[in-house]
Design a protein around this nucleic acid. Sequence first.
RNA 1: UCCUGAGUAGCUCAGCCGGUUAGAGCAUCUGACUGUUAAUCAGAGGGUCGCUGGUUCGAGCCCAGCCUCAGGAGCCA
Length: 478
Amino acid sequence: MSQRTKIKALLESEQTNIEVTVKGWVRTFRNNQFIALNDGSTNSNIQIVVDFENTDPNLLKRITTGAALSVVGELVASLGKGQKVEVKAKQIEVLGDSDPEKYPLQPKKHSLEFLREIAHLRFRTNTFGAVFRVRNSLSYAVHTFFHERGFVYLHTPIITASDAEGAGETFHVTNFDLAYPPRTENGDVDFKQDFFGRATNLTVSGQLEGELGAMALSDIYTFGPTFRAENSNTTRHLAEFWMIEPEMAFYDLEDNMNLAEEFLKYLIGYVLKNNAEDIEFLSQRLAEEEKQKPQNERSETTLIEKLQFCLDNDFQRLTYTEAIDILKESTPNKKKKFTYLVEGWGTDLQSEHERYLVEKHFKKPVILTDYPKEIKAFYMRQNDDGKTVRAMDILFPGIGEIVGGSQREERLEKLEQRMTEMGIPTEELWWYLDTRRFGSCPHAGFGLGFERMVQFVTGMGNIRDVIPFPRFPKNAEF
RNA sequence: UCCUGAGUAGCUCAGCCGGUUAGAGCAUCUGACUGUUAAUCAGAGGGUCGCUGGUUCGAGCCCAGCCUCAGGAGCCA
């Protein structure tokens, strides 16, 4: 197979009047003369100019939208205005035909809903090409951020036996014949005979295992798939999603917040610098989408401006209690515009409240800390007031909660007492409690929903459009 | 899971008060044109009106159930 130059390199080439080989897929073929060819290396296409008068008409007919081509030709300065360089074709080979009557992607705008139905082909559109190049870049940035800081990438298990984390409904893992599972004398399914000798499920979080790593390696992070069997039908939830969970020994909540804020800014800055063309495209796409909305719902700031704003400003930090006070005194609360009115201390914040704080009151990312212990997980460190825990949630405009974290309860007695109160079996988590029995120390960590971060950076409204093959209720196609 | 809205050509949609042969734009195909940038111009083909049942002389339209999709809510990341 002869070497070919990727389109990104050709478009950036300083040299012209050189022979090149280019391969890719046809986006459009205009005037029997101009092929817009794309190979995914960049959002831009290269224009191939065909000398149609001296080309076999049967070959011309096979140059259709979606067809894969190999072109040998001369890279020249373009005569047209839309591009700097183009390739004057000397030899065109159709590597793979694409029947235009059947190929679902037409040279026109498609709705995101329609493209979701053909997720196997949507990579071939400008929008999804950009989204998945940015997603790739972000995941690379996750690793560089932590590696630059001496964190150890720890692979936590996908299959676990602990159902005790309380992070949501789990998917069961079994190799039983589901029609005839072995049963015990009293008719229950006998998991002792199952593959692992016990009931198992897909992980809902790598945190507990991550803590085990941190209690020896100091700073670790996980980055892998996570599964929730919740019947969630929203633009912010998936049944299978990727989560990043750093866990740091000798960190308190303050250190934890500092790291999280630095991390989010690093990711945004990385993409602005390294994916400028794709972000620019996505920014324009979003601006056009905004134009379709009624004027009062439109956002005046562009995607790039929003990202830059996040980089340039400190996140607003305040306690849950302070947030409740602000919400109580807020205009929508007094005028009873909220669906859920804020009256007392102790209830969880609704989406509308989070959105008010982030988008209306502070107009920037917000970190909320010290939530009531009743609405948070068992492992969070209890404050001296006996009412709150050292939790922190980072709220982003348009996304809501993007990070959830806490300083962990390192005191064995306090932890066991809380687990008992919340009905979490201490025997089952004996291995977790061992870290508190042997050399316990203050530590903290957080979880970042990777897709929510990709959503924020790309400006895509639906989380199903930022993961290549989304898994959600009633859908596991592809 | 709940609330609201939607499902009509490949795509995006229109379809009046229930009435004859269900329309448009784009896409596709054919022809013309040939330095185009969502090319342009002319013509053609293309429909199980989501599914099942009901009301009616007659249903794309009314009723019931179901399925799917979108937006919002809950759960959360």
